[in-house]
Design a protein around this nucleic acid. Structure first.
Lengths: 189, 189
DNA sequence: GCGTTTGCCTAATAGTTTTAGGCAAATTAG
DNA sequence: CTAATTTGCCTAAAACTATTAGGCAAACGC
């Protein structure tokens, strides 16, 4: 029988593409097998099960996102960095909605700790060094940024701001302005 | 054969409970039939299909949430109202994680327009009357609030802020403070 | 070439979704 | 109060997904 050359790597990569095309929910072992023209059972030598496959796609997305973030943040500080980081999340979600959804998958504590998720937290903290925040306010601010970025991106992607004026780009800019102002002038408790 | 007394209403309500117990993802026609002690096919007289069931659960959650919000906002203004609304979302998500997840389901435009989703937007706008914002800033602010509330709640629920100091209640308070300050002092473009 | 590893296969089991058609219980009518 | 009708839940069946066990042949190491 002709061998297609399946590897875990190729499966995960194809799974990520599939997610972007049809949605992360629809990524299934069967669909992936179909895409490679092999039988479903053949995938089970390369991924443990469906959950394992999805987890690996999530980890891939988290890494790609962290790589982009690191790139975008290099040499930037203050509002410039804030905008760059926000844009990384927003652009990634728009370019790769399936991967972005995958990145939202709940990982168990151990997997999460070994994932690129920690880099994300570190980079957000690094960004905040451009503002004048000390603990515990820095942590509060990390969480605020995470909330706004994730919340905005997922609402926009889900059509929550659908087709109504003013356009979403304008809102996004104004939200970044507002965030910058908030961080520069963090209110006392 | 003994009749159990299935109705669409009862199915949706039980589906919502099931969602809170095992997660919205795991709400399945089969599981619901099991819960009622009837055969799977019997449910198809009351809900069109699996997607219909999930949609109805989502609509229920949106309504419950809107009712709570209306209650909480009555007689409040300014930061008081802001805190009350934020707490409604956060508390609801903590009490009913499955329903909250359901409320995030992507509805098609028509269904969304007929849902309690529009009440949510209206209430947020009403809240903003306590601040000095005019269009289009008001819309930007509606979107900001939606992003922060949804983003924070879903990250907290997903364990994104897991078990690290400072505790999430403190962060939540500080985020509400920051939002209030931002709205009182909305930055010019 | 020969043996070993490994990749993909067939076969089988189990669970979910959905449709079609049937019988009996509940409801309405005469 | 029986008879007719509606309705509720059932059985049966097809299609798809997930997963495991075991087999054969291709690729590789010598």
């Amino acid at each position: 029988m002709a061998r297609v050359g399946l590897t875990t790597e190729r499966l995960v990569r194809a799974g990520a593409e599939l997610a972007d095309e049809v949605g992360f929910e629809e990524v299934t072992v069967s669909a992936l097998a179909r895409r490679f023209g092999v039988k479903v059972a053949s995938l089970y030598s390369h991924v443990r099960n469906s959950h394992d496959l999805k987890t690996r796609i999530a980890l891939l997305a988290l890494e790609e996102l962290a790589d982009r973030a690191a790139d975008a943040l290099a040499g930037r500080a203050g509002k410039d960095a804030l905008t760059a980081l926000g844009d990384v999340y927003r652009d990634y979600a728009r370019e790769h909605p399936g991967r972005y959804a995958a990145a939202q998958l709940r990982l168990d504590a151990e997997t999460a700790a070994a994932s690129a998720g920690v880099r994300h937290a570190q980079m957000t903290r690094a960004l905040l060094r451009g503002y004048d925040l000390t603990e515990p306010d820095q942590t509060h601010a990390v969480r605020l940024l995470g909330s706004v970025f994730h919340g905005y991106v997922s609402l926009e992607l889900g059509g929550g701001f659908s087709h109504s004026a003013p356009d979403t780009q304008e809102t996004w800019s104004r939200i970044l302005d507002a965030l910058d102002a908030t961080l520069r002038n963090w209110p006392a408790p």
